[in-house]
């Protein structure tokens, strides 16, 4: 490994990793009763104004073990992309 190796600019390497992680969470962590989920407004802030969100408001790493929150995050992100392209 070279001393001056840099991170790939396109971020493809870990983009794929996070996509796989999302698939895993959607398949293995259903939470229809939405136990422990942060308020949807907090998830919206995480997408739009992440600097205003705290780890506590997100219930720490809850999202990594919740298909419902993951799905909502994906929808919000798509919505933001859609709005940006208009």
């Amino acid at each position: 490994m070279a001393e001056n190796q840099t991170f790939p600019l396109d971020e493809d390497n870990d983009t794929l990793l996070f996509e796989k992680l999302q698939e895993h969470v959607l398949a293995h962590y259903p939470n229809p009763e939405r136990k422990g989920c942060p308020d949807p407004a907090v998830l919206k802030s995480l997408i739009e104004t992440p600097g205003e969100v705290t780890l506590a408001a997100l219930n720490d790493l809850h999202i990594f073990k919740c298909a419902e929150c993951t799905r909502l995050l994906m929808e919000l992100r798509q919505q933001k992309k859609h709005e940006a392209s208009e």
């Binding site: 996070f18 895993h24 293995h28 995480l46 992440p50 780890l55 720490d60 073990k65």
Partner: peptide, 30 residues
């Protein structure tokens, strides 16, 4: 895969960075 175990002892700012990346923020934004 038990993220609680994988991510134990990780500082809060790193946890937050991973959550932001999970929500598809770019590294420069994080």
């Amino acid at each position: 895969i038990d993220l609680d175990i994988i991510l134990q002892n990780i500082p809060p700012e790193v946890r937050f960075a991973l959550l932001l990346r999970y929500s598809q923020s770019r590294w420069n934004e994080i």
